[in-house]
């Protein structure tokens, strides 16, 4: 299992488009990928799940992956978020 914690920096948090991009990226990996915010855990491959976290700028979230490409998944999502989700 791989995991990393990151603070969301982009202005609109994980709003519609950023959330969709993140879900798209998560979908590229075979591993199970979870997003966790304040103890609430959702499937990162589910747009509805990600939307339900209602992530705003400044929120701390954890990316957790389990599976063959877990490390790649965590790194991929982390760099996408760091790039500002554009």
């Amino acid at each position: 299992m791989q995991e990393t914690t990151i603070v969301i920096q982009n202005e609109s948090g994980l709003h519609a488009r950023p959330a969709a991009l993140l879900v798209q990226e998560a979908g590229k990996y075979e591993s199970q990928v979870q997003l966790i915010k304040a103890g609430k855990q959702v499937d990162a491959k589910s747009l509805l799940g990600v939307m339900s976290l209602s992530v705003r700028k400044g929120d701390e979230i954890t990316i957790r992956a389990e599976g063959n490409d877990a490390e790649a998944a965590v790194n991929g999502l982390r760099s996408l978020i760091e790039s500002g989700l554009e």
Partner: peptide
């Protein structure tokens, strides 16, 4: 997109 969503 909802119809492809694992949460749905």
């Amino acid at each position: 997109s909802f119809l492809d969503d694992p949460a749905y």
